[in-house]
Design a protein around this nucleic acid. Structure first.
Lengths: 130, 130
DNA sequence: AAATCTGTTCTATTTTGTATAGAACAAAAA
DNA sequence: TTTTTGTTCTATACAAAATAGAACAGATTT
């Protein structure tokens, strides 16, 4: 799995890492039970600081996406027992994203089509999706 | 239109204001051609600094959602001629949001239903939606 | 015409977030 | 036993966010 860091981006590096890991899981490049690289080796690969990768991992753990085993590694968790607040935050993000789409003039049909197309794209990469 | 600021939130105040204005437009509470409150009066109402509201307005102007007329006011623009980068950023946000939803185990049907339900909710508030 | 209100611009300070750096610790793995 | 692991600590540097006060010039209201 390839991760690209854009230093010019307005998105913090630790979030760029988190987001691309999430996409990698959704696409099936990494699967539940597998382990992420150590913070030191990953940082060396990406050319960033160890603490930046560490922050990214803890960000993913807070979302319930990975589990950090002290002195061992970061393991992708199975999609289960995720907390309510994570789901509510996601729903709020959907609400705001749809609101903005409507405001800039996207028709409802186009929004539905965009979502359906993206879901198809992920399904294409990851056959195990429900 | 009522706007609530949560000081505990990790979302910056100026973004909370922007987001709720966008939702207000999507819901039809404010319509194209109408004017937003002055930065000073709005700031007084919300209990925040004038410059924070000013930042929010300029953020909305950059998105093409309002037009700031110097020495006059901030006017809601009609949904037209939006730049490509705004749309591409939106699509990227949809992609990441859907990826995260899939990772925490939401079935594709549930994602589609959530989007459809939110679209219905906005339609219910705003009859003029396409 | 005068007073008020408007967004703008400027300096200034405080707080928080981001990113890097280096060092040390204790436990797990090789 | 040596290496690797995540963790913790101090430290620095920079940027973003939020507040504050003042002043300006144009628009609006009285």
């Amino acid at each position: 799995m390839i991760i690209r860091i854009e230093s010019e981006s307005d998105i913090p590096i630790y979030l760029q890492i988190s987001n691309q890991i999430i996409e990698g899981i959704a696409r099936g490049y990494i699967k539940a039970g597998q382990t992420l690289p150590s913070v030191r080796s990953f940082a060396a690969d990406l050319g960033v600081n160890m603490h930046t990768v560490n922050k990214s991992y803890h960000h993913l753990e807070q979302k319930g996406i990975i589990q950090i085993v002290p002195k061992s590694g970061a393991v992708i968790t199975s999609p289960q027992n995720f907390n309510e607040s994570t789901i509510n935050k996601l729903k709020d993000e959907y609400k705001h994203l749809i609101a903005e789409s409507l405001v800039i003039g996207m028709p409802t049909t186009q929004i539905k089509e965009l979502v359906a197309a993206l879901l198809e794209e992920f399904k294409k990469s990851n056959g195990q999706l429900k």
